[in-house]
Nucleic acid binder design. Sequence first.
DNA 1: GTTAGCACTCGACAAAATAGAGTGCTAACA
DNA 2: TGTTAGCACTCTATTTTGTCGAGTGCTAAC
Lengths: 344, 344
Amino acid sequence: MELDARKLGILKAIIDEYIMSASPVGSRAISKHEEFNLSSATIRNEMADLEELGYLEQPHTSAGRVPSDKAYRLYVDQMMQKAALSDDEIKIIRAHMSSKLDEVESVMKQTAQALSAVTNYTAMVMPPMLAANRLRHIQLVPLREGRALVVIVTTAGFARDAIIRVPEDIRTDELERISRILTERFYDCRMDQIGELISHEMSGELYERRAFLCSVVEAIERKMAPDSPNVQLSGATNMLHYPEYSDVNKAKTFLAAVEGRNLLYDMLKRASKLEFSITIGNENQDETFKDCSIVTATYQVGDEPLGSFGIIGPTRMNYSKVISVLEYMRRSLSEMLSADQDDE
Amino acid sequence: MELDARKLGILKAIIDEYIMSASPVGSRAISKHEEFNLSSATIRNEMADLEELGYLEQPHTSAGRVPSDKAYRLYVDQMMQKAALSDDEIKIIRAHMSSKLDEVESVMKQTAQALSAVTNYTAMVMPPMLAANRLRHIQLVPLREGRALVVIVTTAGFARDAIIRVPEDIRTDELERISRILTERFYDCRMDQIGELISHEMSGELYERRAFLCSVVEAIERKMAPDSPNVQLSGATNMLHYPEYSDVNKAKTFLAAVEGRNLLYDMLKRASKLEFSITIGNENQDETFKDCSIVTATYQVGDEPLGSFGIIGPTRMNYSKVISVLEYMRRSLSEMLSADQDDE
DNA sequence: GTTAGCACTCGACAAAATAGAGTGCTAACA
DNA sequence: TGTTAGCACTCTATTTTGTCGAGTGCTAAC
């Protein structure tokens, strides 16, 4: 049995219908599409074939049919036509991205909000990984006895700080001196290379402080990696709009899974190797997302991927809209951030 | 009609029962308490009285009775006996508060998690307000053209940063000079006084830069106020366990309200004027929380309140447990933070 | 290959029946 | 006077039953 043009057309009609209605699609509904001009009986035969081929599923005899994950996969790979964003949608995004484009934290937060507002699904955004940033300033600030705060500033204007231990014999003015030397030495180095470089540079005037310097670098590296708490999440409750989640228990499982950001962080981390990715239903590793689809995109500056963001929705999500939105966002995020880093 | 000892006892029994079961309490259930040794008929009479007095409500004729907000108020004010935390509870808290007590952000996050895990309600934690902190270091780091990053470090080891505009005619080495002067001038000043002080100090060598300095101070002040995004939230989905929220729409409203942290922030801000506060049901300003109770506590160092945290649960929450947990947490947070600020 | 017709299946929904928890009231009792 | 047993009544939740309609698969005819 072949998947001929007509079957394909019928399948597409079923998927489109199901994405709209969330309820099983019957043969009569499809036979009404005048482009086919076929009776419901014929459609039924075709649907039986499609089911046999694994593209459709029946919740029970005498319900309509529901697209399978395999069908969605075919749909996004071959059948779906991309829609440009409507003016309204762009307006919604703009409305959320208005102010304070200076601070990256708030850009990430606003991006997440814009994404969830415009798609009505759940949005997640990972902040930029700073590996490709270049160092601009290191400052060691003495605190109470034996403690200091390391502050690192990168070219793009990111600051990170961490509390570290300081050996008793290092005095305030020496911390100042070390700050100056480190800043000078590593000025304009990529953040992910400082670790290596410092072991080479450890000779010279800083030699006797190498243990201390290692702890500084260790703290820097720890703080430069974006971690799960920093994943911005927005619109998790949007899922409650959809009949898929009218069951409180399903909703609970979903919400609990996204509330601890770890899962999201892992997914985004993995996704940051690809420009776009779409995983549908069972393609998702995690049990909780077996009836979700997750679409992600990666934003970058030049060739350097900085981070990923994405949308989680029911498998019957509006893929074409979601993809358009993500493409749009990917572009504007990348632009926004390369404006910051024009020296890259 | 009076609220005599027996009525009080019966009311307490009803409340305790209802807190456990969440379903209307009938006269028979109470008459089984051997401490009263009364028939259900007598209890019924008493319950009718309690209803007339406004302490009980009937969902409909021939259901049992449910305590009113007024009853809960009486309960927390006079009837409830405080329970010490059990070993298990303390163990749960400890388990969540393990590592990395150095970084305040993660202390706040872990506190929220511990609170929600041990109470099974929703927890919120506001990070410390830095008003009473003292300045330790200001650093202006030049970024691309016309922009710099201000970094401020306080005695307690908090760092804040903000991107500011820099007039074209200020060169890198002047930024360095200004950093040094500002650090020197305001060393050990309370953060909330820098704004005032700077207008006095504006004479002298910094006079010609006063417009710029104002923008620096403005940025500092903006960043020092903890704002709603920084409120840590944990266990919002716990509410879905409770029959009060088995209705998806109620759940949705609740979750949407807490997801945007603004409301929580406002509540915590207000609460930070009191050591503890309990608001029950209708005592809450916001419509969404009319059937919740909110218990908050304020942590402090010395006499200076730093921030608040709290628990949101259904009105029939386990008040005595929640209060004990908050007391415990208030103490340990305060201790933890004063260890950091022994110079306060 | 397409379609009309038909018997059949199954879930959704509504109406009806039933059970059970709880109440208020009255009258009797200590 | 306070307490209690008894009883009729109310109301909800649950189960049962019946009905409707959407949808299917199969067959026979076009």
